[in-house]
Amino acid sequence: MGPNTARENGLAERAGNEAGGDVVRVDNAKGRGSIVLLCDHASSRLPAEFGDLGLDAASRRAHIAWDPGALGVSRHLSRLLDAPLVWPDLSRLVIDCNRDTAAPDLIPALSELTEVPGNRDLPGTERARRIALAHTPFHDRIGEVLDARAADGLASVVVSIHSYTPVYKGVSRPWPVGILSNRDRRVADAMIADLVRQGIADVGDNQPYAPGDGVYYTVGRHGEARGLACVMVEVRNDEIADAAGESLWAARLDAALKAALVALGEGG
């Protein structure tokens, strides 16, 4: 099963999700584990109103549209950790929910090396409409989940799951997985140590991205800003290109996150 099949399976399971509006989905909303999972780039779905944004089918399935494999890994982790999982069922080509609303690449007219004609010269009204469609409800829903857990006396560790390409603009990326952190390194340090213990070589520490690249918006907003332990995980997408890869990396990350919880004093 390829990554696009994982997406199709995810869309087919929408009816089983416990919460979410037209775009935002929440799996296992009542999960009692200490982890809260976020998957900003879970879906490549383009609602009919956006047409094809001027892109061919290959581009609409490519990494510029979503993070292949990330939702599959996230759903495995949700089950393993009894964790709520919040994700937008919308391509980041429509709007990138992991960017500040003032960011120039919030609605990309150029994504990596690909022009997106349907995003060129958008009026302010269309920008505002897209923010209201997905960005605002996604972040509102994350806030609601975290607030409800706090009211119930549950600890929350914010973990965002992403994937990345083996080659970016002609440059190879050797790391099979990257663990990203900013000021709060508690979860990242524990995860990196456990992944090394598992025998995984070349674990990226703030590689292939770092918060300074503008990719840490969601984790910063809902983790660091609330004083919650947090981390962002990037898995190279050739590692999770099928169901077996998704399951394998979910098991590895499950072990690493449980090690982090022990280090935080939150149990295994």
Rank of each mutant, 00 (worst) to 15 (best):
V167I: 14
V167Y: 04
V167A: 12
Y168A: 13
Y168H: 14
K169V: 11
K169Y: 04
G170V: 09
G170L: 13
G170R: 12
G170Y: 08
V171T: 15
V171F: 12
S172M: 07
S172N: 12
S172D: 12
S172E: 14
R173W: 00
R173M: 00
P174G: 00
P174Y: 00
P174R: 03
P174A: 05
P176D: 12
P176G: 08
V177F: 00
V177R: 00
V177M: 05
V177C: 06
V177N: 00
G178L: 01
G178Y: 00
G178R: 02
I179G: 06
L180D: 01
S181V: 00
S181M: 08
N182V: 02
N182D: 15
N182T: 01
N182R: 07
R183G: 15
R183L: 13
D184K: 09
D184L: 13
R185N: 13
R185M: 12
R186M: 11
R186F: 13
V187W: 14
V187Q: 15
A188S: 11
A188V: 03
D189Y: 02
A190E: 08
A190V: 05
A190H: 06
A190G: 10
M191L: 01
M191S: 04
M191I: 06
I192K: 03
I192A: 02
I192G: 02
I192L: 08
I192F: 05
A193M: 01
A193S: 10
A193Q: 06
L195Y: 04
L195N: 14
L195M: 15
L195Q: 13
V196T: 14
Q198M: 09
Q198A: 13
G199A: 11
G199Y: 10
G199W: 09
G199S: 12
I200A: 11
A201S: 15
A201N: 15
A201P: 05
A201G: 14
D202T: 09
D202G: 04
D202N: 15
D202V: 09
V203P: 04
V203N: 04
G204Q: 01
N206H: 08
N206S: 11
N206R: 03
N206Y: 05
Q207H: 14
Q207C: 09
Q207T: 11
Q207F: 07
P208G: 10
P208S: 12
Y209I: 08
Y209N: 12
Y209V: 04
Y209K: 03
A210S: 15
P211I: 04
P211K: 07
P211S: 10
P211F: 04
G212M: 01
D213R: 01
G214F: 08
G214L: 12
G214A: 12
V215A: 05
V215E: 04
V215F: 07
Y216K: 01
Y216N: 06
Y216P: 02
Y217H: 15
Y217V: 03
T218F: 07
T218K: 05
T218L: 03
T218G: 12
G220I: 03
G220V: 09
G220D: 13
G220L: 02
R221D: 05
R221Q: 13
R221W: 03
R221G: 01
H222Y: 03
H222E: 10
H222T: 05
G223W: 08
E224W: 11
E224T: 15
E224G: 11
E224N: 13
A225D: 14
A225N: 14
R226Y: 04
L228R: 12
L228D: 12
L228Q: 07
L228H: 14
L228K: 01
A229I: 10
C230W: 00
